[in-house]
Simulated assay, not measured.
Amino acid sequence: MTLSLQQPPDEIVCQSFPTTLKGVTRVWFSKLAQSSIDDFDQLSNLFVHHFIGGQRQKIPADHFLTIKQEDGESLRFYVKRFNREVLEVDEAEDQVQLTTFKAGLRSKKFIVALTKSPPALMTNLLMKAQKYMNAEDALTPIEVGGTRISKTNPRDDQKGQKRERRDHPSNNNRSKQREDKARKMVNFTPW
C-alpha cells in the first residue's frame, strides 16, 4: 500500500493565488489578459520572470568600510545609520561589523571608552554605545559660564509671552520708544 498525497487541481491553485497578492503584485495580476493562463506552472513562471528584476543585489560585507561617522554627526545618528546599512548586507559576521563600526568612529571620547574595555560582540558594543549616548543626553543641558546649553528650542523660553510682530507699524514705534527711554536713562546717570 502506498500513500499518495493529493495536490489540489491547478484551477483551484490559480484561483486562490490572487488572494495572497497585495499592492504592486495584485495590480500586475489584474492586468493579465483573461484566459491567458493555462496552468499554475505557467502562472508561476510569469510571476517570477516579471518580479525577478525587483530583487535587490546582495551587498558584500566590505561595504561596511565605506560607512564613516561624518564631521558633526552625533554618535546616535551614526549608530542608526550603521544599523540601517547592516540590514542591507547579507550574512555579515559579527566581528566584521564590530571592527568596521569602530574604524568608522570619530567620537574620540567613545573610542577611549571602547579601548578601556573592548566589547567582544556587536550587541555589547551597541549596548555600550546606548549607555554612552544616554549619558551624553543627560549631561547636555549644563551651565557653562552663566549660559545654559540645551537641546531645546530657544522659543521655549518665550512661551506664554506676547510676541512682537515686526511688520506691524505700532511695533516700530514701541521699539523706538524703548530706545529713547534707554538713551534717557543713560543721560541721567550721576557720573
Rank of each mutant, 00 (worst) to 15 (best):
T140Y: 15
E179D: 11
L75N: 04
G54N: 09
D38W: 02
G54C: 08
K151S: 10
M1C: 05
H63N: 05
L125E: 00
I59F: 02
S30F: 07
C14S: 14
Q7V: 12
R106W: 04
Q97F: 02
A103S: 10
F188V: 11
V96A: 14
S35A: 10
F40L: 10
T147H: 09
R148H: 12
T115R: 12
A138C: 02
D62Q: 08
P190Q: 07
N83V: 05
K116V: 05
T99E: 10
L105K: 01
G160V: 00
I59G: 00
L43T: 04
N134A: 09
S117P: 01
F29A: 11
V79E: 01
V48Q: 14
F64H: 08
T115I: 03
V13H: 05
Q158W: 12
L126M: 05
A135C: 02
D94L: 03
F82E: 04
F110P: 06
R56P: 00
P190G: 05
D62K: 06
K116L: 06
K184D: 11
S170E: 14
I111H: 03
L32K: 03
I149P: 02
L46N: 11
F82T: 03
V24N: 12
Y132P: 02
I52A: 09
A103Y: 06
G145F: 08
S16T: 13
R166S: 07
H168M: 00
M127F: 04
P119T: 00
L126I: 06
Q42L: 06
D94E: 15
D157W: 08
V186G: 14
Q6E: 11
I12R: 13
E136M: 07
Q15C: 12
L125H: 01
Q95C: 07
L139S: 09
F77Q: 14
A92T: 01
N187H: 09
R81P: 00
D137E: 15
E136Q: 12
L126D: 00
A61Q: 09
C14H: 08
K109C: 05
F188H: 13
T115F: 05
Q42Y: 04
A138N: 04
V86G: 01
P118L: 00
N153W: 02
Y132S: 09
K80V: 03
S107T: 15
G104C: 10
P154K: 02
V144A: 09
D41Q: 13
R166A: 06
Q57G: 07
S16R: 13
R165S: 06
S107F: 06
L126N: 06
M185K: 15
A129M: 00
E73M: 08
